[in-house]
Computed example of a mutant assay.
Amino acid sequence: MGVSGTGKTTVARLLAQRLSVPFAEADEFHSPGNIAKMSAGVPLDDSDRRPWLQAIGRWLHEHAMTGSGGVVTCSALKRHYRDTLREAAPSVFFLHLTAGEEVLAQRIGHRTGHFMPGSLLASQLATLEPLAPDESGAVLDAGPPPDTVATRAVALLPRPTESAHE
């Protein structure tokens, strides 16, 4: 989770590879209307986000039920957005990637082929509600190279508990 430019997709792909689990990019769950809105520089509102979050939650739930688990990117900027994901997948663990505003702006300015314009960064930063102490997750500095961030992410993930018969 985190604002645009933190490297969510890059780190999530690396993390999914290291864990040998499925990967999903949250942007693929957006409706064409949401994409058009963001492409025009208009921030999404909660009514735009709810069906998107519910679709991501279904993906998380399905992968939890099959036992495969998975890694999915999602900005999840507000607590109640994360609550929507937790409603569908109670065991979800959030890795909140963070970076300074200058780093984020630079990254967004250099990426190509993405519908999220840099002009929306300020609104994302203003909307962001960091993980609360009672939320399952961890905060991770996304400033280092992605490989380093992914290595640190693996170390932060909760370990499955051992079976009762072992």
Rank of each mutant, 00 (worst) to 15 (best):
2 G>A: 05
5 G>K: 08
5 G>D: 03
5 G>W: 10
5 G>A: 07
6 T>C: 13
8 K>S: 04
9 T>R: 08
13 R>K: 15
14 L>T: 05
14 L>W: 02
15 L>R: 00
16 A>R: 05
16 A>D: 10
16 A>G: 09
16 A>I: 06
17 Q>A: 14
19 L>G: 05
19 L>F: 10
20 S>Q: 15
20 S>L: 09
22 P>K: 02
22 P>G: 04
24 A>K: 13
30 H>E: 08
30 H>N: 10
30 H>K: 07
32 P>W: 11
33 G>W: 06
36 A>I: 03
39 S>E: 13
42 V>K: 06
44 L>T: 02
44 L>N: 05
45 D>C: 05
46 D>L: 07
47 S>T: 15
51 P>R: 10
52 W>N: 01
54 Q>F: 07
56 I>F: 11
56 I>H: 03
56 I>M: 13
59 W>L: 09
59 W>T: 02
60 L>F: 11
66 T>W: 05
71 V>T: 06
72 V>A: 15
73 T>V: 01
76 A>Y: 09
76 A>D: 11
77 L>F: 11
79 R>F: 00
80 H>N: 11
82 R>N: 03
82 R>K: 01
84 T>D: 12
85 L>V: 04
85 L>D: 06
87 E>F: 08
89 A>G: 04
90 P>R: 09
94 F>W: 07
95 L>M: 08
96 H>A: 12
98 T>H: 06
98 T>R: 15
99 A>I: 13
101 E>T: 12
104 L>D: 03
106 Q>S: 14
107 R>P: 04
108 I>Q: 09
109 G>I: 08
112 T>C: 06
115 F>T: 08
116 M>A: 05
117 P>D: 14
118 G>S: 13
120 L>E: 12
123 S>D: 01
124 Q>S: 09
125 L>Y: 11
126 A>L: 12
127 T>M: 12
127 T>V: 00
128 L>D: 00
130 P>N: 11
130 P>D: 04
131 L>M: 10
131 L>H: 14
131 L>Q: 03
131 L>R: 11
132 A>R: 15
133 P>T: 08
133 P>R: 15
133 P>N: 10
134 D>P: 00
134 D>C: 08
135 E>P: 00
137 G>K: 10
137 G>T: 10
138 A>V: 05
139 V>E: 14
140 L>N: 01
142 A>R: 06
142 A>C: 08
145 P>A: 15
147 D>I: 05
147 D>H: 13
147 D>K: 06
149 V>F: 07
149 V>Q: 10
149 V>G: 07
150 A>I: 03
151 T>C: 07
152 R>P: 03
152 R>S: 14
155 A>H: 09
156 L>V: 06
157 L>N: 05
159 R>I: 13
159 R>T: 15
159 R>A: 15
160 P>R: 13
160 P>G: 01
161 T>F: 11
163 S>R: 15
163 S>I: 08
164 A>I: 10
165 H>A: 13
165 H>P: 05
166 E>Y: 05
